[in-house]
């Protein structure tokens, strides 16, 4: 389990304990966090689960692979802090992770 905090575009926060092995996207969907669509269900095919990761966390997460990098490059609101939440696996290593959601996924 890891505690993950999801921060909506307007600053509203939601914190949950998410089981190991799930993705951060699944943690959001399971807990009905608004702002993460995940149209493809986690296949890294749609870029509708984009989140912003604070810089101090970015280095602690597994690197972005080329598929994710390309998907992100087409996401309207992506920045250098963006990741796809479906590609971040939950484990003790992400305890305390904070992710921010964009205004819209489209």
């Amino acid at each position: 389990m890891a505690k993950i905090t999801f921060v909506e575009h307007d600053g509203k926060e939601h914190s949950f304990e998410v089981e190991n092995g799930l993705s951060v996207m699944e943690g959001a969907v399971k807990n009905m966090v608004p702002g993460i669509d995940a149209d493809c269900g986690g296949a890294c095919a749609c870029a509708t689960c984009m989140v912003y990761i604070e810089p101090e966390w970015a280095a602690k997460l597994p690197a972005v692979d080329s598929q994710e990098e390309t998907m992100l490059s087409f996401s309207d609101h992506a920045t250098s802090e963006s990741r796809l939440a479906c590609q971040i696996k939950v484990s003790a290593a992400v305890e305390g992770l904070r992710v921010k959601m964009p205004k819209s996924q489209h």
């Binding site: 080329s66 598929q67 390309t70 998907m71 490059s73 087409f74």
Partner: peptide, 9 residues
């Protein structure tokens, strides 16, 4: 096939 850039463009 394993070409997200081509797909998205």
């Amino acid at each position: 096939v394993n070409r997200p850039m081509e797909f998205l463009t």
